[in-house]
């Protein structure tokens, strides 16, 4: 068991969980979005960690043969980053509208108004 080979993942997990904590615990809509971003960014790090090859270099092909890190996770994460920012943009827009309609972006105050 190469426990030490895994520490990188564990840090990522801790980061993710902080993000998730912010999403669940926070009643503030914008803070929730910030939390989502941290959560997602941490997942990106997880992916990139998977792609890393010891002794590898960036996957831009050189003339002489070399070891390259895995480009596939990079591609996936490029996509995922865009998806993330898209979600953020839409979520924030909704939050702004909610503020317009309810005068608050605290979840509990909104619920009070709805009932």
């Amino acid at each position: 068991m190469e426990i030490f080979g895994l520490y990188n993942y564990w840090i990522v997990v801790v980061l993710m969980m902080i993000g998730l904590y912010v999403v669940v615990a926070s009643g503030n809509l914008i803070k929730k979005i910030v939390g989502l971003n941290i959560f997602q960014t941490s997942v990106f790090i997880l992916y990139i960690s998977i792609g890393k090859l010891r002794g590898g270099t960036a996957p831009i092909l050189l003339e002489e043969p070399a070891a390259y890190s895995n480009p596939l996770p990079h591609v996936l994460i490029l996509t995922a980053i865009v998806v993330g920012v898209a979600t953020t943009a839409l979520g924030l827009a909704l939050a702004v509208r909610i503020y317009g309609a309810y005068g608050t972006i605290e979840e509990e105050e909104i619920e009070e108004q709805e009932n």
Binding site: F44, G51, P73, V85, Y99, T104, I105
Partner: peptide, 30 residues
């Protein structure tokens, strides 16, 4: 971790666009 393209993007998006959007939203709310 050798992901230069991703780094590029994350810097531009995470530290750039997303922040601008969030600040914009904050300015419009509280």
């Amino acid at each position: 971790m050798d992901a230069v393209d991703v780094a590029f993007t994350e810097a531009a998006v995470g530290a750039g666009i997303a922040i601008i959007l969030m600040l914009g939203a904050l300015a419009l709310t509280t």
